[in-house]
Each structure stands twice: as structure tokens, then as C-alpha cells.
Amino acid sequence: MNKKAGPLFYIFLVIFVFLVMFPFIWVFLTSIKPPSEIFGDKAFAWFTDSPTLKSYASVFFDHPFLIYLKNSFIVSTATTVYTVFVASFAAYAIARLQFRGKAVILGLVLSVSMFPQIATLSPIYIILKNIGLTNSYLGLIIPYTTITLPLSIWILVVFFRKIPHDLEEAAKIDGATLMQTYWKIIFPLAVPGMFTTAILVFIAAWNEFLYAFVINTEVAYKTVPVGIAMFQGQYTIPWGEISAATVVVTIPLVILVLVFQKRIVSGLTSGSVKE
């Protein structure tokens, strides 16, 4: 459908973008207001006359926000690296090799990705508690596998299937072993797909709330979503600090999305479109 876009269309777009972005805009404007203007009459003014970074300073100096950032970063990175690594082998086998039970395995992967987290929560919590892994990085990396592994396998299978067969067959004829074929031929071609998968896995791990909330309750191991959600002031909810913290975690994600939007969309929609 290559219709030309008229001016009405652009007006619609501007309104649409404004509505979607409004919460961020408002939160950003709040984050630079001095504390006295966040509450009361001035709370509804768009712009403050005396913008300040006090809320940001408070987030970093009065609250353990840097620790939360560090924890989230470590947990998400480790989860991403290990899941994509493990999933890539399974996805390669499913996409390329012939073996019995493939449909069953794919069905299993798909079902697991639909598991409600709450259904695995109590045993995972008890096991981790018994082996002393609550309040640790591993305590989150391990359960995150339930979410990220099926997701990675699913996306990677679709990517592997798109790699042309010819190269592999040529390698086989030349006498390359399966592993050689994988590392020398498939892997380099699959790097973009793996990268896309990695972005999605990273976002999924970064955003996870329930396990993080239940398993890591100590400040030293809390992640960003739990940290922000549990931000408590002494008397009132500290909206200024919460806004500043929200801006701080949103900016990297906005950059990530701007840079990798095509990849993210291709990863999100893989498997849902017949091509």
C-alpha cells in the first residue's frame, strides 16, 4: 500500500507521538523541578523557572541507585551471554539437522515460554534459599533462564533458517566436520541474528521484576526495577527522585532502541509472519 501521506496524516502522527511520549516528557520535566514545585499548585506547571539537578544528585548520593544499576547490569549481561550461547546450539540443531522429536522439543520450548512465572516461583525460591543463593547474582541468573532460553531458541531458529543451505553443503563436501561448519560458516552468518537475540534477552532480563523482587531482597543485590518501585521517602513518596531515576534508566534504553530499532522489530516479529 504505497499511498502518499497527506498533511492530516502528519498531524495525526505528531499527536500520536506526543501521547505516547507524554509520560516521559512529564517525568523528565518533573525531574528538573526543585522539590518545592513538585507538590502543591506548581505541580501542574509545565516548566519550572529554576531548573535544578538536585533530584539527580539525591538519587545517586542519598539512595543506593548506583548499586542497583551495577546489579542489573551484571545480572542482565551474564544472563544474555550464557543463554544466547546455550540457545544457539539448540537452535542450530533444530533449524538445520534432521532428528526425531524435533516438533516435540519445539512445542516444549514454546510451552515453557508461556509458563506463568508465579507457577515456578515457590520451588525456585525454596531451592535457592536452601543452597544459599538468595541475595546473589546467580540467584537471579539461574531463574531468568526460564524466561530467556525459550525466547532465544525461538528467535534463533527463525534466523538460522534464513541462512542459505548452499554454503553448508559445500563445506560438507569439502569434508568439514559439523562443528567446523558451525564455527566457520554458520556462526559468522548468524552473528546479526545472535546480536538481535542478545538485545531482546538483555531487555527481558533488565526488566524482570517478580523473581528479582522475591529472591534478592537485600539492598546490595537489588535490581533497578525493584529499586525504583520500592523507592521510599521518609514521609511522602519522593516523586522528584523517582522521576530522576526513571529518566536515568530510560535514556540508555531510548538510545538502544534508536540504534537497534530495526533489529528489535525483526526479533520481535520473527515467527509471527509467514514469509
Binding site: 511520549m21 533488565w206 526488566n207 521484576f209 525493584v226 525504583i228 518501585a229 530510560t250 531510548v254 528489535i264
Partner: peptide
């Protein structure tokens, strides 16, 4: 962007 930020946030 709304999709990418943590639900809790």
C-alpha cells in the same frame, strides 16, 4: 520505547 522500559518503572 514504552515496550522497552521496565514495567515496574
Amino acid at each position: 520505547i514504552p515496550w522497552a522500559i521496565p514495567t515496574a518503572v
